[in-house]
Amino acid sequence: MSFWNYLINGLSLGSVYAIIALGYTMVYGIAKMLNFAHGDVIMVGGFVIYTIMNGAGLNPLLAVLISIVACTVLGVVIEKVAYKPLRKATPLAVLITAIGVSYLLQNVALLIFGSDAKLFTSVVNMTPISLADGQIVITGETQITIIACIIIMIALSLFIKKTKAGQAMLAVSEDKDAAELMGINVNGTISLTFAIGSGLAAVAGALLCSAYPTLTPYTGSMPGIKAFVAAVFGGIGSIPGAFIGGILLGIIENLSKAYISSQMADAIVFSVLIIVLLVKPTGLLGKKYSEKV
């Protein structure tokens, strides 16, 4: 495989990270909480598609749509039941609850589907593109992943800049109390954010499982952590930051797997994160906050 193939694969993995990281960063920006259960929503999305395609034999596109709806509902329910009562509690309490939700999702999946890996049928059915006399092959999954990531990124940016709901999100993330005084429905806005984030997680689940076709109850947890790293890398709370962070992380991971050591890839990814944070403590595109005395 040539350098370009590694780069393109990295871009594809990075796009998946970016989609997950977008959900992470939106939820963080608004609820100021690390949603550890976000990675497991990806896994739930994967299992929904798996069940529908293998059990009911429906069209893959329809399966993805149903999975998005299911994850959106799941995200909103999680927020209402587990996070909303703790909105005024310490951040650590919410974090632990999120970990509890993450365990819960994993173990429910474990009970239903068992711990053995399921073979996931790709939802993408496209012919690979060959470039440079077959030296470089771009699979259908890669094409769809990269295109989906760019579309989602643009759509989200437009949504936040141009719509009222998007502006409400910005306002709530800036100052919850002031936003409430301005007549913004804070609870509704937070629910909407969780809905969008979880919907994105379902998309990411479909793309991730198509590219790496094994599915277990723990599928989502490592990509979830990596996406969180990507979000921090780009500056948590910033949408272009999550996009850039995700893409860079995927490329770094794949190139270090190819050229340095496949076992050390994770360590290299994390080292890059540490170096970036030491130089820029709020990430690549993060906002600087001055401290009030």
Binding site: D266, F270, L277
Partner: peptide
């Protein structure tokens, strides 16, 4: 030097790096 969630993620990163290095 870092604060809050950034510190949390960097400690997580260090933990994973240690585990990774021990494995090779």
């Amino acid at each position: 030097r870092l604060r809050g969630d950034y510190l949390a993620i960097v400690t997580l990163a260090f933990g994973e790096i240690i585990k990774n290095i021990v494995n090779v």
